[in-house]
Amino acid sequence: MKKLLTTFHKDMTMSLRSFYLYIEIIMALLIVAVLLFVVPESFTSEQTLYLYLDAELPDRAVWSDLLGQEQEDQLLVFDSEEDVRSALHDDHNAMGLLLRQDDGRIAVEVVLQGYESEKQRQLMETLFTAQQLQSLPGFTDPTVITRLDGMPDGISDRLHLLPVFLVLNSAMVGLFIIAAYIYIDKDEGTIRAVAVTPASIWTYLTGKVLMMLVTGLITGSLTVLAVAGSTVHFGYFLVIMTACNLFGSALGLLVASFFDSMTKSLGALYVVIVIMSLATVSYLMPSFSPWPIRILPAYPMLYAFRETLAAQPDGGMIVFWSMIFILAAAVLYVLAGLRYRKTLTI
């Protein structure tokens, strides 16, 4: 234990001397600044609508309210159907609406781009019908919503985004950096110095992992407390951050053990990080969640971190994933250790 503490102390001193820890803290502060001052509390983006109105229909203001478009520049009225179609060719994120009088009724033609799936069209049609249903006299809503987290409006868009930064910056900090540490020790001959001390390979590697854990906990706590404040369940946060950080460091150690230089190992780690980042795409866009993305470790991490921000978090889910990541970290760590025993001169 004493040997481990000495190694850990040495690593922490080294990270302070090389300004590494300060750079990580600056990175965390930058993320806090971006989340607080650039990302709005709510940023639900509405699609731009290009509208054509039959001459007999009420004017634009009436339709603006009906279509729920709050901002002026999100509803543009055109003089002809052709103009709407032509504008859609110039903006492939927009949608067109052609409204005509048809035998005493109003016929709405939705002009889409062409990439929308059959289910998306079906959903639009159903929601359009539901909207009319709700405006009928005597309509009573048969649905009630039970929210398990006890928050009537859910979490804000900003808090929804926070887990992305927590996972990629703090939880996965070791994945990228731990290899660099080991190669520095190799290059500077520190490993040879360690070889003549009673420290084992496990003490040496654990010291590195603990240093990464402290870095992840400092930067993660700083970010979550500054952005979420008292909303976060800090105990749960520390548990999942510890588990994910250990997993990231163990994975970094294992991947790096297959290469003989920092550059080569960073190339491989970079690829691992880009693949892990794909999980954020599905997290931010749940309708795109193919199984290869769902099996990535970063996928449950994102949801577990989000759970710590709920009013009544599901502790079972957070503890379950924490256990899984700690177990996985232990396996990866042992595998990495066995490889380093052969390659490092300790």
Partner: peptide
Amino acid sequence: RGILQVWQEPPSDLPLTISFSDIGWTL
């Protein structure tokens, strides 16, 4: 909520009808 409302009470006669078309952009 909208899907379930329409399932529970399928409307028969609504003032607005809806149809779809597209400009053929598949990307």
